[in-house]
Amino acid sequence: MRKVLVVLLILVIVGVIAADRIGVRVAEDRIAQEVAAQSDLTQRPDVTIHGIPFLTQVIGGEYDHIELGIGDWTQQGVTVTDVKVDMRGVEAALSQVAGGNTANVTARTATVSAVAPYELIKKNAPREVRRIEPKGDDLAVDVQTSVLGIQVNGTGVLQLKPTDRGIAVSPVSIETEGGPRIPLSALKQQLTWVVRVPALPLGAKISQIQPTPEGVRVGATAQNVKLNDLQRVQR
Score class of each variant (00 low, 15 high):
V115I: 09
D20H: 04
V105E: 05
V195E: 00
S113T: 15
L184S: 05
Q189M: 12
G71D: 00
L202K: 06
Q159F: 13
G61N: 02
L55P: 14
A19Q: 11
I70V: 07
V112Q: 03
V112L: 02
V233W: 09
V6E: 12
A220I: 00
T79N: 01
Y118L: 10
L68G: 03
G15D: 04
T155M: 08
Q57L: 09
Y63D: 02
L160N: 03
M1T: 12
R127G: 12
R127L: 12
R44N: 12
R21W: 15
A103V: 13
L11D: 11
L230M: 14
Q210Y: 03
K135L: 09
P45W: 07
A103Q: 13
Q234P: 06
D72V: 00
L5Q: 15
V172S: 06
A140R: 12
A98W: 14
L148Y: 09
V218F: 02
K122G: 09
E62A: 13
L202R: 06
I52K: 10
K122N: 12
P117C: 07
V197G: 02
G178I: 07
L158R: 00
L160Q: 03
Q223R: 14
R2K: 09
G89N: 08
V24Y: 07
R165I: 10
E119H: 07
I167T: 02
A140K: 10
Y118S: 09
V58Q: 10
G154K: 05
V85S: 03
S146I: 03
H50S: 10
A168G: 10
I150L: 06
R131P: 06
D142L: 15
A93T: 15
V24W: 09
V26N: 08
L191H: 03
S39P: 14
S170M: 08
Q234E: 14
S173R: 07
R181I: 10
I49A: 04
Q231L: 13
E28H: 09
I49R: 04
